[in-house]
Measured scan of single mutants.
Amino acid sequence: DHDVVPEDKFQETLHLKEKEGCPQAFHALLSWLLTQDSTAILDFWRVLFKDYNLERYGRLQPILDSFPKDVDLSQPRKGRKPPAVPKALVPPPRLPTKRKASEEARAAAPAALTPRGTASPGSQLKAKPPKKPESSAEQQRLPLGNGIQTMSASVQRAVAMSSGDVPGARGAVEGILIQQVFESGGSKKCIQVGGEFYTPSKFEDSGSGKNKARSSSGPKPLVRAKGAQGAAPGGGEARLGQQGSVPAPLALPSDPQLHQKNEDECAVCRDGGELICCDGCPRAFHLACLSPPLREIPSGTWRCSSCLQATVQEVQPRAEEPRPQEPPVETPLPPGLRSAGEEVRGPPGEPLAGMDTTLVYKHLPAPPSAAPLPGLDSSALHPLLCVGPEGQQNLAPGARCGVCGDGTDVLRCTHCAAAFHWRCHFPAGTSRPGTGLRCRSCSGDVTPAPVEGVLAPSPARLAPGPAKDDTASHEPALHRDDLESLLSEHTFDGILQWAIQSMARPAAPFPS
């Protein structure tokens, strides 16, 4: 592969990997390779389809078979030569091979799209000592099968071997295949498990690692696999990028399955594409389908809103127990993405979901129960707010008499603000006073009005108090039968009158 990737590009890729991570280095090298001529790309395919690569990765054979028959990708048995050289000459001794072996032994695996480039050397060096003999053996194999790289107009793939297949390693990572398949204008990513390549439709969760975000852009890794992070704060999961590491605690105790298979379609829109997988259930989501939507993949363990709600429900009964003089119970939860139609709101002032922060849900004790107040519409209280300059209440639009249902020339009671006709409430011909108009209920007259088809109010509507207090003497005590009587009149003013009279009014101040 030294004929494909020059030394300066190799060093530039290593520097970019240390600065921005393996995914960015892979993407940059792939983009550079696509700008080369067809001879360089053909050399790339020839390096990929060597015999030892085909033996190690069985899924490469179907890719090789898909090439046109007129494309010669065979390799000479006596060494490598550029395709432009007409004579089959043995190339001179390859010093770059020693360079590659020494550099890969030092860096474990470079971040390139060629056999030198995919593992994360920093994480491997940190986690190597417990498994040094086995990992050293794996390093000797890295130059042979560490990076199976493929690129063409139909298929483009980048393979990364790992030393996680050490025997006896619980939940060992089998390997990473960062794979971009450009077929019919689409893009897919796969993962390699035990020599087999699994596409998103049959993606397997190998051991402790999972394909957290099938994305090839942005600074985030394709698999949430930063070796420096180790395990999740809650004892979460091992990262795919942690090559040759000792077994780590796999999943939280509440995880239903340690080796679950995540779905390959969004649980909201039932469509495929780039998904984020939940650590607590097999569901996966688009970032845009979450509520609120996320802009980037959160670091650490992530769970959907259903799993978060289940966790909150487990903690909430203990938080609601009476604990005198104790601060509110704080339950730190990872930043969760909410699927459509589901929402768990945190306290005000918290950062938005999706940031690399930890939301704190506070379970406050329930407030003391209070008697429910009568629910009145805002339009129902409008007549009470229509007060004239002299303190006389004006008529609201649409006000109707509670007896006849007519809204023409209605009066407004100064005591309960109900609309009424003087002739309907006082049919006996009582003279109307000039000021202080009161309806039949507030004036103490319980004589029913002779209106055909309208039920008369119940005599129990009024329960006047002592006459010594004029204001308190007109406080009506309405009961269920009074409400039914008012409802039978089918008037809004009657219902409003009952609601206003049912509310307690402050006692009249004593004259000074």
Rank of each mutant, 00 (worst) to 15 (best):
W498G: 01
V246C: 14
E274K: 12
R438D: 04
P282F: 08
G407Q: 12
E489F: 03
A477Y: 08
E314F: 13
I297C: 08
H425D: 14
P249H: 08
N262E: 13
Q260D: 04
V454P: 10
S306I: 08
D481L: 02
E343K: 12
T471G: 09
R440P: 05
P292Q: 09
T471D: 15
G398H: 14
N262M: 00
P506D: 01
R505I: 15
A251S: 11
P247E: 12
T357S: 07
R412N: 13
H259E: 01
S369E: 08
C416N: 01
S488V: 03
V315N: 11
C401T: 03
G434V: 11
P249T: 13
F285W: 08
P433H: 15
L290D: 12
A251W: 12
S379V: 12
C278E: 07
V360P: 03
P397R: 07
P450I: 15
R461L: 04
P332R: 13
L308M: 07
E263H: 15
H259D: 08
P348A: 09
Q242M: 10
T311P: 11
C307L: 12
H479M: 04
A340D: 10
P292A: 12
R461T: 02
L411M: 00
L359I: 15
N394E: 12
D255Y: 13
S441M: 02
Q325C: 09
P282R: 09
I495E: 02
S305Q: 09
L395T: 07
R318V: 07
Q316N: 05
S378G: 09
A499P: 01
L411A: 06
P282H: 10
A504L: 02
P464W: 06
L308V: 09
V268A: 10
E343H: 14
G244R: 13
T358R: 12
T491C: 15
K468Y: 08
E475F: 06
A467S: 12
G349L: 06
N262K: 10
E326L: 10
V329N: 14
E265K: 11
W302I: 10
L395G: 09
L478P: 06
A477S: 09
L455S: 08
L337V: 10
F420P: 03
P509Y: 13
F285K: 14
A380Q: 10
A467Y: 09
S339H: 12
P347Y: 14
H425Q: 02
L258H: 03
Q313L: 13
S431I: 12
Q501S: 04
F426Q: 12
P282Q: 11
P448F: 12
Q257V: 10
Q325E: 12
R432D: 05
Q497V: 00
V315C: 07
T414A: 10
D279P: 05
E343P: 13
P397C: 09
P256D: 00
V312E: 10
R345L: 08
H421R: 01
G272S: 08
Q309M: 11
P247M: 13
M355K: 11
V360D: 04
P327E: 13
G465N: 08
P249A: 09
A284S: 06
S379K: 08
R412L: 10
Q309N: 09
F492P: 02
F285H: 14
L385K: 04
L287T: 12
H286A: 12
V360M: 10
S458Y: 14
H415W: 04
G354S: 08
P365L: 15
T301I: 09
C281I: 11
A463F: 11
C401F: 03
P459K: 05
P328T: 12
Q309Y: 11
V403P: 04
T301Y: 12
R338T: 07
P476M: 15
L462Q: 09
S369W: 13
T311E: 06
I276E: 14
R412V: 07
S369V: 09
T435L: 12
V446W: 11
D469H: 12
L250H: 12
P368I: 07
Q497P: 04
L258E: 07
E320P: 12
P433L: 11
S291L: 11
G280L: 13
S299Y: 12
M503P: 03
E321G: 12
A399G: 13
E342A: 12
H490C: 01
C281S: 11
H259C: 07
G300E: 08
P464K: 07
V451T: 10
V268K: 11
G272A: 04
V454R: 07
P509D: 05
C307I: 13
L486S: 03
R505S: 06
E475Q: 10
T447H: 12
D482V: 02
A499K: 01
E321V: 11
P464D: 03
V454S: 08
C404W: 02
A396N: 11
F510A: 03
D255Q: 09
Q260C: 08
D493A: 03
P397A: 07
C424A: 02
E314W: 13
E350C: 12
V344R: 11
A340V: 07
D409E: 08
P464M: 13
W498E: 00
G272R: 09
E320V: 12
P509W: 04
I495A: 01
H363L: 15
